[in-house]
Nucleic acid binder design. Structure first.
Lengths: 140, 140
DNA sequence: TGTACTGTAACCATTACTATTACATTTAAT
DNA sequence: ATTAAATGTAATAGTAATGGTTACAGTACA
């Protein structure tokens, strides 16, 4: 899976800790060790899906609008990674019963699998992730 | 995810339909539209895990030894794709509470998630896949 | 002994992912 | 108004992951 999911979770976790002001893509990028342009691209997705607000210009940046208690990893997965667990399939060989149908059969199975994965991820909110991050930090 | 999983399922499904003789990597490769060397590589994994037998030399090839009713997609996933649903994580920023712990938190969550995925995939045997392939074929 | 196979390493090609640059646009402050 | 600080986004370049191909050693059978 791509790292967009991780970046989205990372960014939202940061924003949840700074609910009172805008954070810039430069600041988030430094925390996540990636290029600011990637942060802006990923966070654009989150804005399009109503999780955050963005503001251009001086003093602009990103801020959490939704409730960190209500945004779950399922929503973030759906936004950033839908279809990501589908196994790749080579070209179909239409001359072969197996070859011509395997792709569809596996696609169907893994679509269901992704729904189950979603149910699992739905138990974790951004607030939970923030807590887990802090717990690990204390443990050191 | 890589196509190794699909190739393994495809190969085993074919083998389950030809239980009485050895199939060659060339034949399987043609059905799956990939290079025979890839088939040999993937099927080596399956042999190492006891699902099939292989034989070199004239008249050699690959044959199912396990029972297609008992080999589930979970086993194949574990062999070919363990860890595949883990989201990638950029480098850690040790100066940042979030940056230094996000990777471990997500790794833990997705390890559990992969176990759940395994439980889901466990309901499908190779025989089931063969049936589904045929059902789709009939439906055309 | 020759032929038909697998086993595997090495290399090349292609695709996917990520970083970077560039620049238009927006906003606030002076 | 002008400048500076930000996002938005397209285009490009670099890097990593994936897959294809070649080569050849080893094995088994006729």
């Amino acid at each position: 899976m791509t790292s967009d999911f991780t970046l989205a979770v990372h960014s939202l976790t940061l924003l949840s800790l700074l609910p009172d002001r805008m954070s810039t893509s430069d600041a988030i990028a430094e925390s996540a060790c990636v290029h600011p342009v990637r942060i802006r691209r990923v966070l654009s997705l989150l804005r399009n899906n109503g999780l955050i607000q963005t503001k251009e210009g001086t003093g602009g940046g990103f801020i959490f609008t939704a409730d960190p208690k209500e945004v779950t990893l399922r929503a973030i997965f759906k936004i950033t990674s839908e279809g990501a667990i589908q196994p790749k399939c080579p070209n179909q060989n239409d001359q072969c019963v197996v070859g011509s149908n395997m792709k569809n059969v596996l696609f169907s199975i893994f679509s269901d699998a992704e729904n189950h994965l979603g149910q699992f991820l739905h138990q974790y909110t951004i607030e939970d992730v923030a807590s887990l991050v802090h717990m690990r930090h204390e443990a050191l």
